[in-house]
Structures are given as C-alpha cells and as structure tokens.
C-alpha cells in the first residue's frame, strides 16, 4: 500500500494468473476450511437433535403408561389419584389446575404488561425509560423458586387477611405470582411490537387532530395488534410451563375446580412431586410423568408455533 504505483515485479508478472476457481478452492474449499464448516454445522444440528430427543423421550417413555391406561380414561376421567390404591389417571384434574393458574396469571399480566409496554414506548421520557427497562429486566431475571418463596410467605398471608378461611395452598396466590413473573415478557415483546409501528401512522393521527391517547389507543395499538397477540400467547405458554411457583404455592391436590381459593395441582407440580420423591422406576406413577410431560410439551409447542407464525406474518406487514 505504501507504494501503489510501483510496477509489478517480474516474478509476479510472468506467473500465470490464477483462475477464480483456484482462489475459491483455496479460500473456501481447502480441507481445513471444509472441516471447520462441517464441525460448526454439526454443532448447529445439536439444537435439532434436542427437539427430536425431547419428542422421542416423551413418546417412547409414555408408551408403557398408555399400555395400562387407555386414552379414554386419560382424556375422559376427571380424577387423578396415582398414590391411592384405586388409581385413576384423568388428565383433566391436572389440566384444570394448570388452566386455573394460567387464567389468573393472564388476568394479572396481560393488562399490566400491555400498559407497561404502552407507557414505556409512547409516554416515558428517555431517562424514565432508562430506569424502568432495567427494572423490568431484573424482574424477569428473578429465579422462579424465589417467586415461589414470595408467593408462599408473602402473597398468601396477605391474601389470607383479605379472604377469611383461605388455605395455605391455593390457586389464587400461585396464579397472581405467575402473572407477576410474566409481566416483563408481555411488556418487552409488546413494546417491540409498538416500536415496529411506523411513526408516520401516529403522525397521521395527530394531523387529523387526534390527542395523544387517541393516537396511541386507536391507531398505534391496533396497528401493533399482531405483535401484541403474539406476546400474549408466548407469555401464557410460559405460565403453563411454570413449575416452581405452582409447586410451592398452589398445592398438591389434583381436582377439577374453577374456585381460585382451592388447593389444586398443576401438571408441572405433579411432575416435580413424583420425581423428588422416591417413586421407583417402572411403576405406573413414575411412567405417568412422561405422559403428563407430553401433554405439557404439545400444548406449549402449539402455542409457540402459533405465536412465531403471527410474529412473522406481522413483521412482513411493515
């Protein structure tokens, strides 16, 4: 570079020019380069193998369970009593517990999360945002077992002063705290969606004489509807898979109920209960955790696929 005008040396000038193909071979296709490429590719395959592994384990290990328990009982029965002498395996008793907690958490998290997203993206000044966003990130970083502790030792006693006769273990406390846990998720994903709305839409609303809230509520939020829905679905799916809060605070009594004051058992809590005990391998109780895990996996997978699809369609919109 120091002497750009210097003539090529005779050596280089007389050497035949290398073809582009030779160069390509040396730069991209030398044995070392190819080995690196395949090694990295093999690493990328691990994530695919993980998915296949999860599916294979859940299906294969569920087979012995479904050999003793018919699908008709699994999906038609409403009692779940693996510890009793008279065993019933009706998934609805666990599924309804999970759904009850999930509905309560959604009631808490969806409005609060969406409101936070609107406030942070549309109202907060730069420095307020700089305080609020790390705060929400910290909230998202709290381990679930710590939330479980909080539910059992703080929220439940608080609720007991408001609702006389409330038991130590109840779906309400667990559901509220699961909701608090997923607020940051709703807030951050919905905020992304709101930010993706072009400024010109808000500007057009202002030009037509809209006030700020009208521009936000009637133009920007509807424009971000797809992304907001995706954030709701992902958050609810997270709530369904949440384990430690419901294990610690919501109880261990599987039952079909819609009463949030009752002690229930969520699917995840059942899996933990069995695996932390000394249940021997090969018993039907032990096998049942794979069947419950399969149901859990299928539900959350369906919701994630749906949310990702909505997000992708929505991203293409603008």
């Amino acid at each position: 570079m120091s002497a750009p005008s210097s003539p090529p040396t005779t050596d280089e000038a007389t050497r035949p020019a290398r073809s582009a193909n030779d160069l390509r071979k040396q730069v991209y296709n030398s044995p070392k380069e190819r080995a690196i490429k395949y090694l990295l590719g093999a690493c990328a395959l691990v994530s695919v193998l993980t998915t296949l592994g999860i599916a294979a384990v859940l299906i294969v290990e569920s087979i012995p369970f479904f050999q003793s328990v018919s699908f008709a009982e699994f999906f038609g029965e409403t009692r779940w009593t693996p510890q009793f002498t008279e065993k019933y395996f009706g998934i609805w008793a666990l599924l309804s517990g999970t759904l009850l907690v999930t509905v309560i958490s959604a009631v808490v998290a969806l409005p609060v999360g969406l409101a936070s997203a609107i406030f942070i993206s549309e109202y907060a000044s730069t420095w307020v945002r700089k305080v609020l966003k790390p705060g929400l990130e910290l909230l998202a970083g709290v381990p679930t077992v710590v939330y479980g502790y909080f539910a059992l030792t703080f929220v439940t006693p608080l609720l007991q002063t408001l609702i006389p006769g409330l038991g130590v273990y109840n779906a309400l406390s667990g559901g509220i705290v699961v909701g608090i846990m997923i607020i940051p998720m709703v807030a951050s994903l919905s905020e992304d969606a709101l930010r993706a709305v072009p400024d010109s839409l808000g500007g057009a609303a202002y030009a037509l004489g809209a006030t700020k809230y009208e521009a936000v509520v009637r133009v920007k939020v509807p424009a971000a509807f797809g992304g907001i829905m995706a954030s709701f679905i992902l958050a609810v799916s997270r709530a369904i898979g949440e384990t430690m809060i419901v294990t610690l605070a919501a109880g261990a009594t599987p039952k079909m109920t819609l009463d949030p004051r009752e002690s229930i058992q969520a699917m995840t809590a059942f899996i933990v209960q069995v695996s932390k005990g000394d249940t021997p391998q090969g018993t039907i109780e032990y096998q049942s955790i794979f069947a419950v895990g399969l149901v859990l996996f299928l539900i959350t997978l369906a919701m994630n696929v749906l949310a990702n699809r909505i997000t992708r369609r929505y991203q293409e919109q603008y």
Binding site: A44, S47, V48, T50, T51, G53, I54, V57, L58, E61, L234, S237, R238, I240, G241, E242, T243, T268, I271, V272, S275, I289, F290, G293, L296, F297, T300, L301, M303, N304, V305, A307, N308
Partner: peptide, 24 residues
C-alpha cells in the same frame, strides 16, 4: 428449519428439559 426449531426450543418449559435430562 433450524431457526424455527431454535425459536420453539426457547419456549419449551424447563421441566420438560428436566425430563429429557432424566431419560437421556
């Protein structure tokens, strides 16, 4: 396929990973 797969893996409940770890 890999990208969609990674996005979906990120949403698998941690207790399901526990079941995978137990079996595998």
């Amino acid at each position: 396929l890999i990208q969609v797969n990674i996005a979906n893996l990120a949403g698998v409940p941690s207790v399901v990973y526990g079941i995978l770890g137990l079996a595998l």
